[in-house]
Amino acid sequence: MPSDLENLIEKTDPFYDTNWCDMPAEIKLECIGKMKFRERLSLRCTAKAERSLVDSQKIEFDEGRFWGDDKMMSFEILSCAFTDYKKLIISDDGLFTAKKIEFLQCDIGIVDAVLRKMKTGVETIKINYGRNISHELAEILAIPHVQNVPYWHIHNYEETDSLHKMWIDKSSKIGSTFQVYVQHNDSFRDFLEHFDDRILSKNENRVRIRTNNPDRHILLERGLDPFVLLDYEPIYFRLKMISAEMKESEYDDDCQKWIRKFDREIYRPKNYYAQIGFYGYYYK
């Protein structure tokens, strides 16, 4: 063989009777990249070395759902460097990354477990539990990396004592928003009880509250939209972290906008509910 050709041919061991274990890591990763979620989970259970290879690769989902007995979680955008969902509760932290998370009718223990597994970077958390989660919320809000999530909304929130604590004590970013809807009409008063000695200004729809950070105020707004009245009257509230410098003239008066973000269906066309034979909603 001429020497110039010899120089170009790199000497390697012959490829003969090769098996998975003889494959270099980069090839294994390429193969793992072609596997579906289930096969990856199976492979990672075969041996430690395989597990670390599988775990080193991210798997991306447009949407992920986990089912259990009467439990379901839905991630709007979930990018997962992942776990066996059966081991979710006991596995490592920081396994999931997602911008938006929505919990629908799922056990609050699962909400807590999943949020603890999240990496930072979550932008939206929506909880539609179906039952009141007020008591458990304090525990959820104590998870350090979810405290700075800029947008929260919670359906069916009854108690009023968790939300304000988080923002009074901690200095959240300006613009951070917490939206809740509550099923009884006394909630505004209940909220105010917690802020009694901190109220800076107050009217029918809006209260401005002092926090422990002199640069930050909380704006508590009640979504009273004259366009819509509901016969069982859920009350929409929005807590927003604002700059202490913000003037009243700068307040956003369009509560429709944020109520719509919370509950898209509420502003359906006037005859929509009549058409589908549901008369629970009526319009002024």
Binding site: W20, K36, R38
Partner: peptide, 17 residues
């Protein structure tokens, strides 16, 4: 290894425990 369990994969690919 489509649809295979960990045990089956270990057997097919001769992955040692």
């Amino acid at each position: 290894v489509k649809g295979k369990s960990p045990e089956e994969i270990r057997e097919i690919w001769m992955i040692p425990t």
